[in-house]
């Protein structure tokens, strides 16, 4: 029996979280999480692309020829990413100057292609939209958690606002600005989340 929307939500956000459970979308998790504002824009872009590509592929699922389904999925995803790129550039050019190169890489984000192939191409549009939203939220929560640690430690700021400690005694950690800082944070968060998940699974048994 197919999952209900609430089951999909819980599964994609926590039990089968795309980042710490399926280890997908790691490239952008490393690249954009040193500033929270950049992370939020990236997350919004991924959520929008996930929802729209899932919706489109689900609507077209009975019409897409099996032999070319991957090409079609990439074409649909790439089109939405181009729209996201244009909109960010128009709405917030300063942010686009920083995350522009990574926005284009949303096309290759494995989560989007994975959800299109594994879920949207086999389910009704409404469920596909919920799945896209839930996967996007699951991805965003982890990225935001990483950014919430990296930006204060690396820059002494949060969303660009200087924290009082920076002026007084804090010395910035350069490693938190660089990709290795993201590796450490991702490792710690994955360890913590999996530990919690395994405990809750053992509790169910």
């Amino acid at each position: 029996m197919a999952d209900t929307p609430s089951q999909i939500l819980i599964k994609d956000v926590w039990n089968e979280n795309p980042v710490f459970r399926q280890v997908l979308g790691i490239c952008s998790a490393l690249a954009v999480t040193n500033l929270l504002t950049n992370t939020l824009f990236m997350c919004l872009g991924v959520i929008f692309t996930l929802i729209m590509s899932n919706l489109t592929i689900s609507i077209l699922r009975n019409y897409i020829p099996k032999r070319i389904r991957m090409i079609v999925q990439v074409m649909i995803i790439a089109s939405y990413v181009m729209m996201v790129d244009i909109v960010i550039k128009a709405v917030s050019p300063d942010i686009h100057r920083f995350i522009g190169p990574y926005v284009g890489l949303i096309i290759t984000n494995c989560i989007i292609m994975g959800r299109a192939e594994a879920f949207a191409s086999q389910n009704r549009p409404m469920l596909a939209v919920v799945d896209g939203l839930a996967s996007g939220i699951g991805y965003s929560l982890i990225l935001i958690a990483i950014a919430l640690v990296r930006e204060p430690l690396g820059f002494g700021t949060i969303m660009g606002y200087t924290l009082p400690a920076k002026e007084l005694w804090w010395h910035q950690w350069t490693i938190m600005v660089m990709p290795p800082g993201a590796f450490f944070m991702l490792g710690i968060i994955t360890w913590f989340a999996r530990n919690r998940l395994e405990r809750s699974e053992e509790g169910v048994k």
């Binding site: 070319i68 074409m75 649909i76 089109s79 729209m83 244009i86």
Partner: peptide
């Protein structure tokens, strides 16, 4: 069918991107 499908999809999304742009 495949050629028709790809052409229709390309036209639709090409137009959509052009409108946004």
């Amino acid at each position: 069918y495949i050629i028709f499908f790809i052409l229709a999809l390309s036209t639709f999304f090409g137009l959509a991107i052009s409108i946004v742009n």
